[in-house]
Design a protein around this nucleic acid. Structure first.
Lengths: 182, 182
DNA sequence: AGTGTAGGCCAACGTCTGTTGACTTTCGGA
DNA sequence: TCCGAAAGTCAACAGACGTTGGCCTACACT
């Protein structure tokens, strides 16, 4: 049996962890199950990631890859942002990991605040110079974005899951536009 | 030691369960902890509610108490709904129970779908007669409402938690108005 | 060929969980 | 006064979990 390299195994475990955390949340995603998915012994997970929290931290790391919306025509900010987040949710499991786990784990909430502050806040601040108002605007935007993600990908509420990409962009775009520029 | 009646004990357990489920979610809210809060033996919980799922079902039962928005002036639907949900979130722990647990438990999701269908759908359908369009409108509304509740009460994101009631009504009202009537 | 080391496995630990059944205590009605 | 049902306690079960330490084994380098 060919033996895997350290880096390969680590990547395999991480991929399995991301899937499990995204699908089941922190508590129900057991190390034993993740190890089984990766076709490895549970003790290897500990070797590479220290403990469960370490594994989670590695699995919940991601980049929003936000475009510089301040460079766009001002009236396209809302729809552009809506479309961007929609694609991002569907291609990066890390975002789902964080949303699912943040509800039960204080560590995950802290990580979410951090990502907001580091990745979303600077972009918003380029649109809204006043810091206090920028915080307000960002807060409103995040409620609508996370609300859509929650209902569509986590809860899978039928009327929301049935929406097409174009419908979502058409309806959420103006909302985000108003929250940011009105 | 004065002995409690069956109904009293059951109510005490239920109150403790609601608090624990709302604060910690389904998995972390243990029967032992709930029983301790109610100053009772864990086995009594089983006696009164059968099993953990039965206890949860009882704790997650609640009424949205939606007003008949179709009777209002049409342009006040959005703000009225925003204000109503805001108050409802803050006075009924049952809603928090369901939101927190729905993220990890399929049973809770099913219950949430049911409440939407039974309590929210009829109200929306009085505003939007066409059933297919009513489903679309309701879906949009629920994303914004749950998104706000998630960010404010569960994740406690600072910019969202800092909002006043009036700010929320002022900003979310027009959004809901557009989702329902535009 | 020999050997050190990195990758991997196995068995077990202590703890916590939901759940069960048998036992004890209280109290209201015949 | 007695007695049976109701309210409550106690101890234990079986399973799952995160985590640990010891042991094996294949491979690269001398």
């Amino acid at each position: 049996m060919a033996r895997r390299s350290s880096a390969e195994t680590k990547a395999t475990i991480l991929a399995a962890a991301r899937e499990r955390f995204a699908a089941e949340g922190y508590d129900r995603a057991t190390i034993r199950a993740i190890a089984a998915d990766a076709a490895i012994d549970p003790s290897m997970v500990m070797r590479y990631f220290g403990n469960k929290e370490g594994l989670f931290t590695a699995a919940a790391d991601f980049d929003l890859r936000l475009p510089d919306v301040a460079a766009l025509p001002r009236d396209q900010v809302g729809t552009t942002l809506a479309r961007h987040f929609l694609l991002r949710w569907e291609e990066d499991e890390g975002m789902m990991v964080l949303l699912r786990t943040a509800v039960t784990s204080e560590v995950a909430v802290e990580r979410m605040r951090q990502i907001m502050a580091e990745q979303l806040a600077p972009v918003v601040r380029r649109l809204v110079p006043d810091p206090e108002e920028a915080a307000l605007r960002m807060g409103l935007v995040i409620t609508q974005i996370l609300g859509m993600a929650l209902c569509r990908y986590v809860l899978r509420l039928p009327p929301v899951a049935a929406l097409t990409h174009d419908q979502i962009v058409t309806w959420l775009g103006p909302t985000l536009q108003r929250y940011l520029t009105a």
